[in-house]
């Protein structure tokens, strides 16, 4: 099986996000960049399928040179090779443009399956997986917590939990799935894995290499424009509910929620 796993690099979830002086982006200083947590599930699942069916796992990332580090992490986990789509003209691209460039990067790879994350924990969009499937003309099984390939490796079944139900989705390969928490426990890169990853192929592609027109990418070509970023509305610490006993506190709280906050 030839499996592609998409890897987006995002700020570590510990990061306190600050708005940059330009007012439309986040301040980049001091950010620790990591693989999007949902992509860890995708890479792990790709490796498990390879262990079962044989074949190859290719990880694909798009972004500045620093993304190399996250791709090396995926290689250290066990992926076979990496592709980094990188070009100054890509800076500031929206999800539609990212998906277009990723589609161009993978379309000729004769893949069976693509794994992406259900959403990036940065912009919280969850657009690129579905858009990539659209541009490649393949089915998309979204936000899944279980994946099974048929014995012949020609189709997949996936579990998608929604609203107290689990939908079991089925599609012929090639297809794209987006990974949700619960799919698996991603492995850590081992020391030998990290050593080996240094020698694994990591290919860089520019927009020109992909036959794409740079003017269709970057901030200027965005279809979704950012007017401004602001810090979230401040939440003030409220009141501590007093009482002599837990029962008194409970009674006071119930009253406040009913009479003052009017939420029950």
């Amino acid at each position: 099986m030839k499996i592609i796993a998409c890897v987006k690099q995002v700020p570590d979830t510990e990061t306190q996000i600050k708005v940059a002086p330009d007012g439309t982006s986040i301040a980049q200083d001091g950010i620790k960049w990591v693989m999007n947590p949902y992509d860890e599930f995708g890479v792990e699942e790709a490796l498990r399928l390879k262990e079962k069916f044989g074949g190859e796992v290719i990880v694909v990332g798009l972004g500045p040179k620093r993304v190399t580090e996250s791709l090396r992490t995926a290689l250290a986990m066990g992926a076979d090779k990496a592709i980094l789509v990188t070009d100054d003209a890509l800076e500031g691209s929206d999800a539609l443009a990212v998906a277009r460039a990723l589609a161009a990067a993978v379309k000729d790879l004769e893949f069976d399956l693509i794994l992406a994350g259900q959403r990036g924990v940065d912009d919280d969009q969850g657009l690129v997986g579905a858009s990539l499937a659209e541009f490649l003309g393949i089915p998309h099984l979204p936000v899944i917590t279980k994946l099974e390939a048929s014995e012949d490796g020609k189709s997949v079944k996936a579990n998608r939990p929604v609203e107290g139900k689990t939908l079991v989705l089925e599609a012929a390969l090639p297809a794209l799935v987006t990974a949700q928490k619960g799919l698996n426990e991603p492995r850590y890169a081992s020391l030998p894995g990290i050593m080996k990853a240094k020698k694994k192929p990591l290919e860089e592609k520019s927009l020109a290499d992909l036959g794409l027109d740079a003017s269709e990418f970057g901030t200027g070509a965005r279809k979704l424009k950012v007017i401004e970023l602001t810090p979230p509305p401040e939440r003030q610490a409220g009141k501590i509910v007093e009482g002599e006993s837990p029962e008194e506190k409970a009674a006071a709280l119930a009253k406040l929620l009913h009479d003052e906050a009017k939420v029950i």
């Binding site: 700020p11 996000i17 986040i26 912009d123 919280d124 965005r222 979704l224 424009k225 970023l229 979230p232």
Partner: peptide, 16 residues
């Protein structure tokens, strides 16, 4: 207006 970074910032957006 959409929260980003799970609400650590808010983005105001429009369209080309």
């Amino acid at each position: 207006v959409r929260p980003i970074y799970a609400g650590k910032a808010y983005a105001k957006v429009t369209f080309s």
